[in-house]
Design a protein around this nucleic acid. Structure first.
Lengths: 194, 194
DNA sequence: GGACAATGTTAATATAGTTTAACATTATTT
DNA sequence: AAATAATGTTAAACTATATTAACATTGTCC
């Protein structure tokens, strides 16, 4: 277990000297979570930005009626956190839970400012990461407005085939914002109506 | 017409020397648009990140059925652009059109890299702006999943009273992802069923 | 291998929101 | 002030999706 995959990921955006890589390594935390463990809990302050080395997580919230809504999944080479909570250090809206045993690189809130100071290039790196996350979020919003549930499911299946195979169907339904019964109906339609 | 409001806005995030402010001023473009004019058109490459000095814009896309969907409004002290198009320099998904005569500060794509180079602090500034935009977008997604149309309308009205007064009701409906007829019904319910 | 929990399916009924279409009101232009 | 365009309302019929509830299948653990 090493931060190597993170360094390779970073290299796609910026060049770090080996000294800078050491600084980075000294400020981040490598941590293993078991299936079922929570990385963040709704109501707590989110202490980390997390890079997923291996495993799979779901980010979800529980509404007033106790319904669970999945906001995103994260697998290898993705990021996860409750960014709203992290940047303002206020209680999180979301839970992040491991769906498999999961290895993370944690960027602690207390270290990240000094990281930016010592390696200003990281501002650029994170800017680029977040730009993309924002665009992804906007595109999802657009889909939720203009596509039917069936079309959204087909898009999900096409875009994230690796994820669909790793998680139960009712979580896909929750991610799509529909009930598991309706997703079941949709899949049935897809099978029998050519 | 000056970039003063932009400089004040930036000061909330980072400190710029007056020399840096001059560099910035030399790279951005001040531009006036008339009501109805397009800042970006779906299919074109988005050339600017725009800061709104005055006026009001809508960002929308037209789906395959020719339906218009409004993604966001921007007023004084807000940003607008098709970020997906801007950062990848590929055709825009969105149109941005002025709903009033509008004054903008444009950050051209060709200048922004050299701006980052000459004023690295701006990486930090934009990182922070985009972090907030991302969080806003995520929260909207959450609302669209867990709130009814009526609740979403009430939230909009509460959060953006300045905007509601400036735009026709059918655009509010489009922003909320419902028909104008249904919004009319909702408003009627709110009046008579206190 | 049996038992219990987790996940998935089916079908009847209910509901939030859409569609259509006709009409009402308000702004804008001449 | 009249004419036209833009915006807003109402109501009936319709549709996509939710809810409920019963049952089926699969996975996990003793």
């Amino acid at each position: 277990m090493s931060i190597q995959p993170l360094l390779e990921y970073i290299r796609k955006h910026i060049d770090l000297s080996s000294q800078e890589e050491s600084i980075l390594a000294s400020k981040v935390v490598l941590r293993k979570y078991l299936k079922g463990q929570y990385i963040v809990q709704q109501g707590d302050v989110c202490q980390y930005e997390c890079f997923v080395l291996s495993g799979c997580t779901k980010t979800f919230y529980v509404d007033e009626e106790g319904q669970e809504h999945i906001v995103m999944f994260s697998i290898e080479d993705w990021w996860t956190s409750d960014m709203g909570s992290f940047i303002t250090q206020t209680p999180a809206d979301f839970n992040i839970q491991c769906l498999e045993n999961t290895e993370l690189v944690l960027f602690p809130y207390n270290e990240i400012e000094s990281l930016y100071k010592e390696i200003p290039k990281l501002e650029r790196f994170f800017r680029q990461i977040i730009e993309r996350a924002f665009v992804t979020s906007q595109k999802r919003l657009v889909r939720s407005f203009s596509l039917s549930a069936k079309e959204q499911y087909l898009h999900f299946r096409e875009q994230y085939p690796q994820i669909e195979q790793r998680i139960p169907q009712y979580m896909v339904a929750s991610y799509l914002g529909i009930t598991k019964e309706f997703l079941s109906k949709i899949k049935n339609q897809l099978i029998y109506k050519h």
